[in-house]
Write a protein that binds this DNA or RNA. Structure first.
Lengths: 299, 299
DNA sequence: ATACCATATAAGCACTCCTAATGGGCATTA
DNA sequence: TAATGCCCATTAGGAGTGCTTATATGGTAT
């Protein structure tokens, strides 16, 4: 291949303008520079590309053949740069989010909606899974950003808490008698508990906390989603450990009651997770901005 | 557009190898140079193109989009260079010849045949016309080379005589009595002459020469081709002015006799004509070489 | 014949890329 | 866990190349 690709750009403009001088002006170069560039290209290809004459230049047969290729190539590069600009303007592109089921259902939807409205050209790809799975996706670049329940212990990740949540216990009307006094953790442990599966981050958090207080729990039910927790509790199958912020609908409608605790479970957060040392893509950055702009006051 | 196209070549190789170091080796560059090139490209496009990690690099979404364009462009340039090499090797291309009817019929055929056999990939385009028309084609680059009857007075043209020809007068058997003594030019002028059309270069040459000797001629017949001259003479319609070299068939077969002249018309030549200051195309050059290689001893 | 336009050529200079060396992050091996 | 190796980022200094300015040459039009 030719030593310097820029020679082809010069060739392209000269072939277009059929004049060294005109091409030079267009390229913001001087005429001698163009002249030398073409000479060098001809030398390297060992082929005369232009017939020079006092009123301009004309492509030789060989030059004309080459021009077809070069023209296409230059147009492609131009198109590529245009594409990049579109991506930069977020007129196109994609955003791949890793996020757990609960979070996407109760927390993320409004942000996804806003983002899509603001940047309709960006394709959204939502990957669901456990916190662990999603973090693996993050590391293998399967997703750009993840929204996870904190805390999360991983040195490779950059974590930005963005929404505080409170773990609480709720139950159906049959358990109304429990409202008369704040319950200790030990008392809670005696109730028929409805929890998420053990591999869920939320379950681990609560379980670990209770354990740190010397309380071991053994649930009656282990369910796959926050939705199911609420549904099971509503029909009085037991006491569910849920996120207060995501249970307001049920509580306000009187379907569930929140049990008072003698000491609340410490707050935790939903957080935005990304890889340390790997800058966010433009789309990801914008999405994070949207979330943080809205939830500004509650992190 | 990006300042230096070479950045795209580096980008292309890095995108291919997914490693700065590997790309550097392939490009015969150093790793820092590659690193800087990519940085510069990213800076100019204001877009991160690679995710760096200690075990290599990976295209970002934006980089991957760009890569598609750049890859195609690079392949096109590669293909263009290959095409040029084919043209240089005369595996492809075209040769556009301007040549008069007589010359193509009597002189050029064997050379065309040889050329085509040796370079079957070259398309041949033969443009017929008068000497004047052909020279115009040469100047407007309609043809690469012309084969003309000399002399020719044109400062813009480079003329290379390559085959000496002799103008002679021939006639049919009815004119056998003219063989008894060498004819003077004045005697010739009295005979019923068969000549080419006045705009033909050969006609002009002979007419001008005779005129310079004080002899004016008025032909009985003016014909469009050398073939017709011979045919008319054969059936005794008059005395034709022809080229000796192109009439041998008729003379040796006894169909025509060459009239002896007191003083022969000066020899002239067929010559290869090209534009001064405009180098020959590779195909043209080869064709000229073939002609000159064969007719070496007769110019 | 002169003026103008085009390309070609020459010499000096700025810039880029190379060489060489350093540092940091991660993975493999002892 | 410490040691080694690989890969990318960064820096400084020096060699080479392309660019610019200035000038030359050829051809055409007025």
């Amino acid at each position: 291949m030719v030593s310097k690709l820029d020679l082809y750009r010069v060739f392209f403009h000269v072939g277009d303008k059929k004049s060294f001088s005109a091409a030079a002006r267009e390229l913001y170069m001087t005429q001698p520079a163009v002249s030398q560039s073409i000479s060098q290209l001809e030398r390297e290809l060992e082929t005369r590309l232009f017939d020079r004459s006092p009123k301009g230049v004309k492509l030789t047969y060989e030059g004309a053949q080459l021009y077809d290729y070069v023209q296409s190539a230059m147009n492609l590069l131009e198109a590529g740069e245009q594409k990049i600009q579109e991506l930069r303007n977020l007129d196109a592109g994609e955003l791949r989010l890793g996020v757990g089921d609960t979070i996407s259902r109760y927390f993320l939807m409004p942000f996804l909606e806003m983002f899509h409205e603001q940047f309709p050209g960006i394709k959204l790809k939502i990957v669901n899974g456990t916190t662990l799975e999603i973090c693996d996706q993050l590391k293998s670049r399967g997703v750009d950003v993840a929204i996870c329940n904190l805390p999360l212990d991983d040195d490779a990740l950059e974590l930005r808490p963005c929404y505080r949540i409170q773990d609480v216990f709720v139950a159906g009307k049959d358990y109304a008698h429990l409202l008369d006094h704040p319950l200790t953790l030990a008392e809670i442990a005696q109730l028929p508990l409805i929890l998420l599966e053990p591999n869920s981050n939320s379950r681990k958090y609560v379980e670990d906390y209770l354990l740190s207080k010397g309380v071991r729990i053994a649930p009656e039910f282990e369910l796959g989603s926050h939705d199911l927790l609420l549904a099971f509790a509503e029909i009085n199958l037991g006491v569910a450990c849920v996120t207060r912020e995501f249970s307001q609908g049920y509580v306000e409608a009187g379907k569930l009651i929140e049990l008072p605790l003698a000491e609340p479970i410490p707050e935790r957060s939903i957080g935005i997770c990304s890889l340390k040392h790997v800058p966010l893509s433009p789309a990801s950055m914008k999405f994070v901005e949207i979330i943080e702009g809205i939830v500004d006051d509650n992190r």
